[in-house]
Design a protein around this nucleic acid. Structure first.
Lengths: 138, 138
DNA sequence: TCTTGAAGCTCTAGTGACTAGAGGTTGTAG
DNA sequence: CTACAACCTCTAGTCACTAGAGCTTCAAGA
C-alpha cells in the first residue's frame, strides 16, 4: 500500500493533482487509514500512470474517463478507444498547422525589427496594429 | 462614435469579450451616453484591432498590456517590443516541438489498432498504459 | 408621440485542469 | 515520547473568456 506522497513520487504527478483526480472521479484510493489518509494499491499506481501518460499526450480528463471506462469493460469494442485517439490526433494536427502559421508570422514580425530606435516607428507594433501586413491568415 | 455592438461587428470580437477587455484595463471606452452605454471612437476601434491581432498570435493579455504601454510612450525604445515578440516566438517554437512529438506518438498509437476486437487487447489502451512503448520522450 | 424589441447594462458564476494557502490532524523516525 | 514531515479538508485563485439573470436604454416604425 502506498501513501499519496509515494504515489506522487513514483508517477511524477503532484499530490494536489492526485486529489483533484479523485475529486473528478478519475482515480479513487483503495481505502483510508484509521486516521483518514489515502492508501493506494498497485492498481491505483498503474491507473495513475495511465492517466499521466494520456494527459501528457493532451487527452482531456473527459476523454481519459471514457478510456478508463472502456478498460473496465473488456467486452466492449476497441473501436471507441481508437476513435478517441484519432480525434486527439486530428486535434493535435490542427493545432500544429495553426502554430506553424503563427511561427511564420512571428518570425516576420520579431525579426523585422532591429530593436533600435524609438517605439514610435517600431515594426513589431506596426505589424500588430495592421493585419494587412500579414502574409497568411490566422 | 460606435456602440459596443458596432465595434464587435467591425473587429469580430464578441461583445462580452470587449467588456472583459475593459475590465482588465486593456480597452477603455471613449465615454458613455446619458443612459450609461459605452461609445467608442476611431482610436478605440484601432486599439481593439491591435488587441485582436495580438491575441490571434497568442500573446497573453499581460504581454499586450505591455505592448500598448509602449505604444503610448513613443520615446521609449523599441527593444522591449521586440523582446516581447521574440519571447512569444520562442514560446510558439517550444509548443511546436512538443506537438510534433505528440503527433508522432499519436500516429503510432491510433494507427496501430484496426478498431476490431475487444477493448481487452486494444493497442490504444495498452500503449497508454505502458509508457515503455513510446519511442521518444514527452 | 408612443411602442416595441434589439441591444445595452451590471453582476455572479462557470469553464478546464490544476495550484496555492489556511488551519488543523496523523504517521513515523529517532 | 516527541518532533515534524506529511497528510487532511476547504476555499479561492489562475487565464481568457462565456453564459445567464434581471434590468434599462436606444432607435425605428406606426
Amino acid at each position: 500500500m502506498f501513501s499519496i506522497g509515494q504515489l506522487s513520487k513514483q508517477t511524477g504527478v503532484k499530490v494536489p493533482t492526485i486529489r483533484y483526480y479523485e475529486q473528478v472521479g478519475l482515480l479513487v484510493s483503495a481505502g483510508r487509514t484509521e486516521g483518514n489518509q489515502r492508501r493506494y494499491d498497485k492498481e491505483g499506481l498503474e491507473r495513475l500512470g495511465f492517466i499521466r501518460h494520456a494527459r501528457d499526450l493532451g487527452f482531456s480528463i473527459e476523454a481519459i474517463t471514457a478510456l478508463i471506462d472502456l478498460q473496465q469493460h473488456p467486452d466492449r469494442s476497441c473501436q471507441e478507444a481508437t476513435e478517441i485517439a484519432q480525434h486527439q490526433l486530428t486535434d493535435v494536427r490542427e493545432k500544429l498547422l495553426r502554430l506553424k502559421a503563427l511561427e511564420t508570422e512571428l518570425v516576420r514580425i520579431a525579426d523585422g525589427c532591429d530593436g533600435e530606435g524609438s517605439s514610435e516607428e517600431c515594426y513589431v507594433l506596426a505589424s500588430l496594429a495592421d493585419h494587412e501586413h500579414c502574409r497568411g491568415e490566422h
